[in-house]
């Protein structure tokens, strides 16, 4: 034993001269983000196939199936109307899953964050890195949906080039919201309420499948409160280059929602990481 430890001493890279200062904020956030990228791309096939498959199923099942009966929606061909809505729902789902089940498992089961907090990272770095990672997933998922839509000839790709940025904003919004939910959750099963009670209904009542104007007047204010409505409107405006004053409200909504929910989530989750 002692002979092996002496030889270990000899091969030890002579250091102590290395920089022992903590990295700057940008590097810290980047390194958290990079951790998520590395883990995600370990299982790229199983992780990245569903975002292509899901919108494909909806396009074929609803677009082409129902589209045979409903040809037009709000002056647009139904298949195009649907496709432009599906662009951001994929971003919503991926960010919501990542920052609920994903975050909870890292926090409570694998204790990944507790491990990372031994390195020069703060709890804030972890949470902000997490939000940006979910937003990045929102971007790539929206991008993959636009590729599917373009391949099927539903919409030309050049119209969709900028939509992934709406996917990024959507991902960020749902990351902040989901992290806030996670900060309250004690057992993983509680997320079922969040998904069945909030995310899934939102999917159907945010103007993805039909215009929210068709809903009863009493339901209209609710559609203006929920976040997906605004993401869908922005994605559609960008796709068809049709901007109205309502879209200004959408942008303000997205910014305020992210800022408020992001700040509260940051504050609450930090107390869960730090005693």
């Amino acid at each position: 034993m002692s002979s092996s430890s002496i030889s270990a001493e000899q091969v030890h890279p002579a250091t102590r001269s290395i920089n022992h200062n903590p990295p700057n904020f940008i590097h810290r956030i980047y390194s958290v983000w990079l951790r998520h990228v590395r883990v995600y791309t370990r299982n790229l096939f199983s992780n990245a196939l569903p975002p292509f498959l899901e919108p494909l199923i909806f396009l074929v099942g609803i677009g082409f199936g129902l589209g045979a009966y409903v040809t037009e929606m709000n002056g647009l061909p139904f298949i195009q109307y649907l496709a432009s809505g599906l662009l951001v729902t994929a971003a919503m789902f991926t960010a919501a899953f990542e920052c609920s089940f994903g975050t909870f498992i890292r926090l409570e089961f694998d204790k990944v964050y507790q491990g990372m907090l031994g390195s020069p990272l703060s709890a804030n770095d972890l949470i902000i890195g997490e939000m940006l990672w979910a937003a990045t997933k929102g971007f790539t998922f929206t991008l993959s949906v636009s590729i599917i839509i373009a391949i099927f000839g539903v919409l030309p790709f050049e119209r969709l080039v900028l939509v992934p940025f709406v996917g990024f904003a959507t991902g960020l919004m749902f990351a902040c919201l989901s992290l806030l939910i996670t900060s309250f959750v004690k057992t993983i099963n509680h997320f079922n309420f969040y998904f069945s009670g909030f995310i899934s209904p939102m999917f159907f009542f945010s103007g993805v499948f039909f215009p929210i104007e068709n809903l009863p007047a009493a339901a209209r204010p609710i559609t203006e409160i929920i976040p997906l409505t605004h993401a869908v409107r922005l994605a559609r405006a960008l796709t068809f280059a049709q901007w109205e004053t309502v879209h200004l409200w959408d942008i303000v909504y997205v910014v305020l929602f992210t800022a408020i929910f992001g700040t509260v989530a940051l504050f609450r989750l930090r107390t869960r990481l730090i005693d």
Binding site: I18, N19, P22, P23, N24, H27, R28, S31, V32, L34, R35, R38, V39, R42, N43, D110, K111, V112, Q114, G115, M116, G118, S119, P120, L121
Partner: peptide
């Protein structure tokens, strides 16, 4: 730390390389 909190999705070498990124070395 007291709890075992390795990144179970990464292998041994990747765990170290990933963690080293946090130090910016």
């Amino acid at each position: 730390p007291q709890e075992d909190n390795l990144d179970v999705e990464l292998n041994v070498e990747q765990n170290l390389r990933n963690y080293a990124t946090f130090y910016g070395l």
